[in-house]
Design a protein around this nucleic acid. Structure first.
Length: 173
DNA sequence: ATCCAGCAGAGTG
DNA sequence: CACTCTGCTGGAT
């Protein structure tokens, strides 16, 4: 997508936090409560907290309250994202950002675009570790075997997200 | 439906 | 480091 993306390793984040601090909060969306964290005006975490709390690594860090929210339309608007993860995860997440609204791919497709079809499982792991739900469209990746697949925040949300993008699941009865 | 190959990452010692 | 376990898989049986 057109998002402005900053890539950071966990170590680099730690260094950065010596000079800056998080702002964060919670807002409600069509999919329930969304908790967020921003650093240097970039979104670095977004989670459906009705299903699962923010990941520990970011939940534990102090932040100052701020007002911020996103609407459905913002899914396709450029945002400033800060992706904290390993080099491999960075690669996978950037592939996700290329998937247009309403389009779905298979885990293997991502693996192939990274140059090795055998990495499909690793791709799944990396996608599962995505710290920024929704904006990084991990919900647009489905298993080749059909169905909705798994989702860090619950497959119900994944299905709803896809449905709202106009995609009809094969196994959607 | 079941089994297994293959890969990145986290945890353990 | 080396080893083990787990995970939003895919393919064969």
């Amino acid at each position: 997508m057109i998002h402005q993306v900053i890539l950071l390793t966990p170590h680099e984040l730690k260094e950065k936090l010596k000079a800056s601090s998080f702002e964060g909060g919670v807002f409600s969306s069509a999919y329930g409560s969304l908790a967020f964290r921003k650093l240097d005006c970039s979104i670095c975490a977004l989670a459906f907290t009705d299903q699962k709390p923010l990941d520990q690594w970011i939940y534990d860090l102090p932040y100052r309250e701020s007002f911020f929210s996103l609407q459905k339309e913002d899914l396709n608007r450029p945002q400033k994202l800060m992706l904290v993860g390993t080099p491999f995860q960075h690669q996978v997440w950037q592939q996700l950002l290329k998937i247009p609204f309403g389009v779905v791919k298979h885990y293997k497709d991502i693996a192939v675009s990274l140059g090795d079809p055998k990495k499909c499982r690793a791709v799944g792991s990396a996608i599962g570790a995505n710290p920024i739900s929704w904006l990084v469209p991990c919900h647009r990746v489905l298993p080749k075997s059909g169905g909705i697949g798994n989702y860090h925040w619950g497959s119900e949300i994944k299905e709803k997200l896809l449905k709202d993008e106009g995609y009809v699941s094969k196994t959607n009865t």
